[in-house]
C-alpha cells in the first residue's frame, strides 16, 4: 500500500466508526463512507482503509480497489493549499499546460506531489465546468480564472504568510 504510516488517534478512530455506523455499516455505502472519511482526514491512508474494511465487513483489497479506482480519492496527504489545475479540453486549448508547467517550476514538485513543507500540492482536475474562465486554477476553495503563466508567481505570493 503506502509508505506513509499513521497511527489513528482514539478520537479519530471513534469518528470513523461513527461515520460507518451512520451508513448502517452497509458494504454498498463504501463510496459514501470513503467520501466522509476523506473529509475528516484529508486523505485515505492505509490505516483508515483497514478500519473501514473491518467496519463494513469487506476485504481490505476491496476498499483499496475502490480507493485506487476513483481519482477523487487520494492516499497521499495534500498540501495546506492544494492547487488544482483544470486540464479539461477548454483549459487545454487555452494554455493550461503552460500554467501547469509554471506551477511545477515555481514549486519544484510534480503532479500529485506535495512540497516538503506541506504548504502546496499540485493536482490536475479533468473539468470543473467553468470553461468560460479557461484556463482555471483552484487553490483550496478559491478559483482563479483566465490564468496566464506569468501570473503564477503573484498567485503563489498570496499564500506567503500561510
Amino acid at each position: 500500500m503506502t509508505s506513509i504510516k499513521v497511527e489513528l488517534k482514539q478520537h479519530q478512530a471513534e469518528k470513523l466508526r461513527e461515520v460507518c455506523r451512520s451508513f448502517g455499516n452497509q458494504e454498498g455505502e463504501l463510496i459514501n463512507v470513503l467520501h466522509k472519511a476523506q473529509g475528516i482526514f484529508g486523505y485515505l491512508p492505509a490505516e483508515v482503509q483497514e478500519m473501514v474494511a473491518e467496519e463494513l465487513n469487506v476485504p481490505v483489497a476491496r476498499v483499496y480497489g475502490v480507493v485506487t479506482f476513483y481519482s477523487f480519492f487520494s492516499m497521499i496527504p495534500k498540501g495546506r493549499n492544494p492547487i488544482s489545475i483544470c486540464t479539461g479540453t477548454a483549459c487545454y486549448v487555452r494554455g493550461a499546460e503552460k500554467v501547469l508547467d509554471e506551477f511545477r517550476k515555481q514549486l519544484s514538485i510534480g503532479i500529485g506531489e506535495t512540497t516538503p513543507d506541506g504548504k502546496f500540492s499540485i493536482n490536475c482536475l479533468r473539468c470543473v465546468g467553468a470553461c468560460g474562465l479557461a484556463p482555471v486554477v483552484m487553490i483550496g476553495e478559491k478559483t482563479y480564472g483566465r490564468v496566464a503563466p506569468d501570473e503564477v508567481k503573484a498567485i503563489l505570493k498570496e499564500y506567503e504568510n500561510d
Binding site: Q26, E27, G28, E29, L30, I31, N32, L34, H35, G65, V66, F69, Y70, S71, F72, F73, R126
Partner: peptide
C-alpha cells in the same frame, strides 16, 4: 449518490456498479 471521479461511470452499467459501492 456521489461519484468519485471516474469518466467511465457515465456508462450506465458502470454507474450502477459505482452506486453499489464497487469499482465503476
Amino acid at each position: 449518490r456521489y461519484g468519485a471521479g471516474a469518466f467511465v461511470c457515465g456508462e450506465e452499467t458502470a454507474l450502477i456498479h459505482s452506486m453499489e459501492g464497487l469499482r465503476g
